[in-house]
Simulated scan of single mutants.
Amino acid sequence: MQNRKLVKSEQELAEAVSLFKNYSEIAIDTESNGLYAYRERVCLIQIATADQCFIIDTLSIPDMSPLADMLSDRNVLKIIHGSDYDLRCLDRDYGFNLQSIFDTQIGARFLGDTRPNLGSVLDIYLSVQIKKSHKLQTSNWGLRPLSSEALEYAASDVEYLIDLHKELTRRLKELDRATWVKEECQRLEQIRHTEPVSPDIAFLNLKGSRKLTPRGLSMLKELFLWRDTKASVKDVPPSRIVTNDELIEICLQASSIRSSDKVTIRKVLTEIGNSVIPYNYLDDILNTLVLSVDTPEVHRPEQRRLNTFSDPEAKDRLQLLKQWRKNKSARLSLDPSLIWPVKSLERIAIQTDQWETEITDLQNSSVRSWQITEFSAELQNLILNNTQ
């Protein structure tokens, strides 16, 4: 176990940043309170060096900017496990854009691991077992003070990553896959936070919403907007007001209502039962549904789906390409998605006059350079042998 330090002030952060300058690689992770807050925040940033672990209490430090230069310094390798979420959170809250990244989850995937969670990866490659309590995984990291168990949990996410990086890199080099992972990790540098879809249209994305009639969709929209406002005021996730499944069930049951009479609507809601409608919000839901009855029906925008594989020959070509990918992934013990993007295979199958550009263009945004180097010749032979 490394020496651990809880950083709770700007002075302590400045001292930690000064120490980081002595290292060419650090491990990093974050903990956030998204399960408990409407406006999610990063609550901890854990940074480990070869011999120390710093747990930075971001809620106690108004200015986190001293970390910016180190995190964007290409001469300092940032080792993270499953980085996508952390990168988006750090960009959202602080504008931090990490450069020079090694994601140990990606590294493990390129060694053939199909379930590369941190616990299993540490066990496989370092024979290290860490305790991952579900209670702590889902705990409210915004609460203070932090328990010793919480600090232990947070530290364990980074303390072994530097050693893990070394072992993964050694094995990747043995398989000549280190450059593959390097390119994948370079792409992580482009990840940025994206704002969520506006509530005015986000309700259309709820699972089960396609079951609703236009009247039911208008009810869902009004309830969705009400829930979002309520959650914002209470600063809790919307699902803690009413779950998505509950919203859909309410609208399925109530969408047959044509009257705006509260007595009629309350009767329908009563039939749905308290198991679906939270009692605390019964009146709010009632009033919202009354208003929704008089609002225009909502019609889901039509999605034009072109049957791109109506051509039997194109369909056969795609099956051939997918089979090639499946066979190649089996030989390399890799997930098929790592071999070649399926969207690219679809374009090759359809656009027979442009396939050569698809498999050789280094500017192709979906196909990696390493994939083109490793597999384009095989793909070319496969295509030529089956289009003559």
Results as ranks from 00 to 15, higher is better:
residue 3 N to T: 12
residue 6 L to E: 13
residue 8 K to D: 05
residue 13 L to S: 05
residue 13 L to D: 05
residue 17 V to I: 13
residue 18 S to I: 06
residue 20 F to L: 15
residue 24 S to C: 13
residue 31 E to A: 04
residue 32 S to K: 09
residue 36 Y to M: 14
residue 37 A to Q: 11
residue 38 Y to K: 15
residue 40 E to Q: 05
residue 46 Q to W: 09
residue 48 A to E: 14
residue 52 Q to V: 14
residue 54 F to E: 12
residue 57 D to T: 08
residue 59 L to D: 01
residue 61 I to K: 03
residue 62 P to R: 10
residue 62 P to I: 09
residue 62 P to D: 06
residue 62 P to A: 05
residue 63 D to F: 04
residue 65 S to P: 03
residue 65 S to N: 06
residue 65 S to F: 02
residue 70 M to N: 11
residue 74 R to Q: 15
residue 75 N to K: 13
residue 76 V to N: 05
residue 77 L to V: 12
residue 80 I to G: 08
residue 84 D to M: 04
residue 85 Y to G: 07
residue 86 D to A: 01
residue 92 R to L: 05
residue 94 Y to K: 03
residue 97 N to K: 10
residue 97 N to Y: 02
residue 102 F to Y: 12
residue 105 Q to M: 15
residue 107 G to A: 06
residue 108 A to N: 04
residue 108 A to L: 07
residue 110 F to H: 06
residue 116 P to R: 03
residue 121 V to H: 04
residue 122 L to A: 14
residue 125 Y to L: 13
residue 127 S to C: 08
residue 128 V to Y: 00
residue 131 K to N: 15
residue 133 S to Y: 02
residue 136 L to T: 02
residue 140 N to I: 13
residue 140 N to Y: 07
residue 142 G to E: 01
residue 150 A to L: 05
residue 153 Y to H: 07
residue 154 A to H: 01
residue 165 H to V: 06
residue 169 T to C: 07
residue 175 L to W: 08
residue 175 L to N: 08
residue 177 R to K: 06
residue 178 A to I: 04
residue 178 A to V: 14
residue 180 W to E: 14
residue 187 R to G: 12
residue 188 L to K: 04
residue 188 L to E: 11
residue 188 L to R: 02
residue 191 I to C: 03
residue 191 I to V: 08
residue 197 V to W: 03
residue 199 P to Y: 00
residue 204 L to W: 00
residue 207 K to Q: 12
residue 214 P to K: 14
residue 219 M to S: 04
residue 220 L to Y: 03
residue 222 E to D: 06
residue 223 L to S: 07
residue 225 L to N: 00
residue 225 L to V: 01
residue 226 W to C: 03
residue 227 R to D: 00
residue 231 A to M: 07
residue 234 K to A: 04
residue 235 D to S: 07
residue 237 P to R: 04
residue 240 R to H: 08
residue 244 N to C: 04
residue 249 E to Y: 02
residue 249 E to F: 01
residue 257 I to T: 13
residue 260 S to P: 12
residue 269 L to E: 14
residue 273 G to R: 09
residue 278 P to Q: 07
residue 278 P to N: 10
residue 281 Y to I: 11
residue 284 D to I: 15
residue 289 L to T: 14
residue 290 V to Q: 15
residue 290 V to T: 15
residue 292 S to C: 03
residue 294 D to E: 10
residue 295 T to C: 10
residue 295 T to N: 05
residue 298 V to K: 10
residue 299 H to W: 13
residue 299 H to R: 11
residue 299 H to F: 15
residue 306 L to T: 13
residue 308 T to M: 10
residue 312 P to H: 09
residue 312 P to T: 09
residue 314 A to C: 11
residue 315 K to A: 08
residue 315 K to P: 00
residue 316 D to W: 14
residue 316 D to L: 15
residue 323 Q to C: 11
residue 325 R to P: 10
residue 326 K to V: 08
residue 326 K to T: 12
residue 335 D to V: 01
residue 338 L to P: 00
residue 339 I to G: 02
residue 348 I to P: 01
residue 349 A to S: 07
residue 354 Q to D: 08
residue 356 E to P: 00
residue 358 E to R: 10
residue 360 T to L: 15
residue 368 R to N: 04
residue 374 E to M: 11
residue 374 E to H: 09
residue 379 L to I: 15
residue 382 L to N: 07
residue 384 L to F: 02
residue 385 N to F: 09
residue 386 N to R: 02
